[in-house]
Design a protein around this nucleic acid. Structure first.
Lengths: 223, 223
DNA sequence: CTTCCAAAACCTACGTCGTAGGTTTCTGCT
DNA sequence: AGCAGAAACCTACGACGTAGGTTTTGGAAG
């Protein structure tokens, strides 16, 4: 139908392919995504894609990179405390996740080493270091923060088709305490909940900075 | 070869299927896993599996449940502070993840509502509540803790084939601060690193309990 | 103006996957 | 003895990722 004749350019390039792939995953989900469906969406032969991205894995990498690029902040100056920078980055990350709930599992699963990811991290850790946080705390911070962000957002988005899940109602007799607390989980996935938890993580980092190598509150075995 | 004649029982049941499936994913990874390969491993026709588990999704649920069951602690009494209980649970969760690195992404991606999961959570939150933590803090704790655990373990395990990843060496010129901190990330995935971060999360929860509804350290918009 | 080449698209074909639908055989109850 | 249901099997279909080969074309070299 919409097939080009051989040899004539169909205007394919890594960027356009990635953009359409993101839209496709947003619409149909990761499970249904594939080279053939993407090719149809592009009006192109499946094998044509392989001239720009060598395999499905590379395709998934391109998708990850494309959505991650949306997180980059507008102001790239070095103003703001590390808390402000970190909080703003985390919020933009959350917004991206909500914009692409079905793409997000890719980000949490695959290691991110693209320049756009590293640039954001560099900004964060350099602000922390400039503020005098101990090196070990700063070194731990990215893994800790994005560990939380990925796991939390994964949990919150893995519910409904549209990604915004609801708590699935539990057995009050078998789990009395959890049942009692259920009303307090009404805001599951809400901005307020996110801010509460993000603040708790940042508090943890800040307080750890106060006693850089102190023992944990309970027994610590050295191993 | 090892095919049964029709009608005679091959001793299939949900439990045995799940156990073999876990072993198969451990060996070959999630990507290679499938109904047909599992059937071959069981010495059985692929379609026989559908009499016990109706579809691949149910199969993945069974796998999740099987590995999650390994986390349940030996002592099911209610002794111990909430910190001890939580820390012990988190450590067992980590050990399970390291035992089944290729299964783990399933746990982080799919919502866990099996009885074994809920029982563990009930124990945790009831200990917190008994210790007098504010209800909202307790209600937030599971999502916060397992958010972190899932995201962190996902990151740490998604490296080498065997799951224990190494940091992939970054460009020192482009990212000077991160390059400087690299030596401090030598223990990537180590028990010590895990304990550091787990303590930071627990500290965050404990400190939040001290000022249950207090504003975050920086500006808080009420939305 | 002709010739040639590399890029970009296309086509064919293979092995694998999940699973719908139907068939056969055995076990246990009446 | 006879029957019902469980548990296995077989066949077949459409979709998938991709290896390998073919065709067309725009532009550079002569």
């Amino acid at each position: 139908m919409a097939r080009r004749t051989q040899g004539v350019s169909a205007g394919l390039d890594r960027e356009r392919i990635a953009a359409v792939a993101v839209a496709l995953v947003d619409r149909d989900g990761l499970e249904r995504f594939g080279v053939r469906r993407l090719a149809e969406e592009l009006g192109v032969d499946p094998m044509s894609i392989y001239h720009h991205l060598k395999g499905k894995a590379a395709l998934l990498d391109a998708i990850s990179e494309a959505v991650l690029a949306e997180v980059a902040g507008g102001e790239d100056d070095t103003s703001g405390s590390w808390e402000e920078i970190t909080r703003a980055t985390a919020r933009r990350y959350r917004e991206m996740a909500y914009r692409h709930p079905r793409v997000f599992p890719l980000l949490a699963t695959r290691a991110q080493t693209s320049p756009v990811a590293l640039t954001g991290l560099e900004r964060m850790v350099s602000a922390m270091r400039a503020a005098g946080l101990p090196d070990q705390v700063v070194a731990d911070a990215p893994l800790m923060l994005f560990g939380f962000l990925n796991g939390y957002l994964l949990a919150v988005l893995s519910g409904e088709p549209d990604g915004i899940g609801a708590v699935p109602a539990i057995d009050a007799a078998a789990y009395p305490t959890m049942a009692t607390l259920m009303p307090l989980q009404a805001g599951f996935g809400s901005p307020a909940e996110f801010d509460r938890m993000l603040d708790t993580v940042l508090d943890g980092i800040r307080n750890r900075a106060a006693r850089p190598d102190g023992p944990g509150p309970a027994q610590r075995v050295s191993s």
